[in-house]
């Protein structure tokens, strides 16, 4: 406090003319934001330009040949496989996550709620290789449950489309819980009571008020889950190698020259496809979120 007081006289004259003070203030604002903008421009912009340039260059000239190739054959299968897997995980994760969130929100035990939310915070970030290994140890070919329950004899394989979906849900459901709990908390008890007071049954309350109010948050959650599953690479790479065709695995293969040398530009074209898909999905998300923020203030 003493320090603050001693610096006071020095600070005063500079502040005296309010106008110049204001403009200096604004100039400072720009300069403080400048390093971040420069950084993002360089660290993000240059690779983006390189990606675009590579995707649209074939044999040294401008062309859409890479893009065409990336939408054919095995590449197309992989892209569709990724979209299908992500869509499944997003919808199933959203439904299950909402179930779980509703069970927690309506519970009288605060400790349960805190525990589930904390665990969700950790598990939503628990992706990548460790997650794959945990599941391999559980339900893989020599996993604990597989061998104890002889699941192998029943045709079970973790290294499949459905196996991947099961594993992806492990981080998707907690993410959904984190997204939807605030929305469920935002459903005011007065709304339910007012609906009842107007003669509405439980079903009518949900149909006319509850679900419409939750829809933006639920769709927002679906979009986030889709994005997470769509971009996931480490888990899939550690689990299935190339058994399940996924676009991220194809890009990695093409980049590291595992399949054919000189296919780097196809990898860039595939990346471009991915960004377009993710961008389209995100474009749905932002306006939705704005609407739910307004309703659930």
């Amino acid at each position: 406090m003493a320090e603050t007081l001693t610096t006071a006289p020095a600070g005063l004259p500079a502040e005296e003319p309010p106008k110049t003070g204001g403009s200096r203030h604004r100039a400072k604002g720009w300069t403080a934001a400048l390093p971040l903008m420069l950084f993002v421009g360089l660290a993000f912009g240059i690779p983006a330009i390189a990606l675009l340039g590579g995707a649209f260059t074939s044999d040294g000239s401008l062309s859409t040949a890479n893009l065409t190739e990336s939408l054919q054959g095995a590449y197309l299968t992989a892209l569709l496989g990724s979209v299908k897997l992500s869509a499944l995980v997003a919808v199933a994760g959203a439904v299950l996550g909402t179930f779980l969130a509703q069970a927690v929100v309506t519970s009288r035990f605060r400790a349960l709620r805190e525990a589930v939310l904390t665990a969700s915070g950790v598990l939503a970030n628990f992706g990548g290789v460790p997650l794959a290994f945990a599941w391999i140890a559980t339900l893989g070919n020599s996993g604990v449950l597989t061998s104890r329950l002889n699941l192998g004899d029943h045709g079970w394989s973790l290294y499949s489309f459905w196996g991947l979906a099961l594993v992806y849900l492990y981080f998707s459901v907690p993410l959904m819980v984190l997204v939807v709990v605030p929305a469920l908390d935002g459903l005011r008890p007065q709304w339910r009571e007012a609906a009842q007071n107007n003669g509405a049954s439980a079903w009518q309350f949900w149909r006319y008020v509850g679900i419409p109010v939750l829809t933006p948050s639920l769709l927002g959650g679906v979009v986030l889950l889709f994005g997470g599953a769509f971009a996931a690479y480490a888990t899939a790479a550690a689990m299935v190698g190339t058994v399940v065709p996924l676009v991220t695995l194809q890009i990695a293969d093409a980049l590291t020259g595992n399949v054919l040398i000189g296919h780097e530009n196809v990898a860039l074209a595939l990346s471009f496809d991915m960004i377009v898909v993710a961008g389209l999905v995100m474009a749905v998300y932002l306006p939705l979120q704005r609407r739910s923020a307004r309703w659930l203030r």
């Binding site: 203030h25 604004r26 400072k28 604002g29 720009w30 934001a33 971040l36 903008m37 993002v40 993000f44 240059i46 690779p47 983006a48 390189a50 990606l51 340039g53 590579g54 994005g227 769509f230 971009a231 690479y233 991220t248 890009i251 990695a252 980049l255 780097e264 990898a267 860039l268 990346s271 471009f272 991915m274 960004i275 993710a278 961008g279 995100m282 932002l286």
Partner: peptide
């Protein structure tokens, strides 16, 4: 002091979410 920069910041800081890491690394390796 620069509230008008807010949307710019928001877009800058949301972009990495749209771009999957694998496509980012494709760009970097190029």
């Amino acid at each position: 002091s620069a509230p008008r920069l807010r949307p710019v910041m928001e877009i800058l800081c949301t972009l990495p979410l749209v771009v999957p890491p694998i496509t980012f690394v494709a760009g970097i390796s190029t």
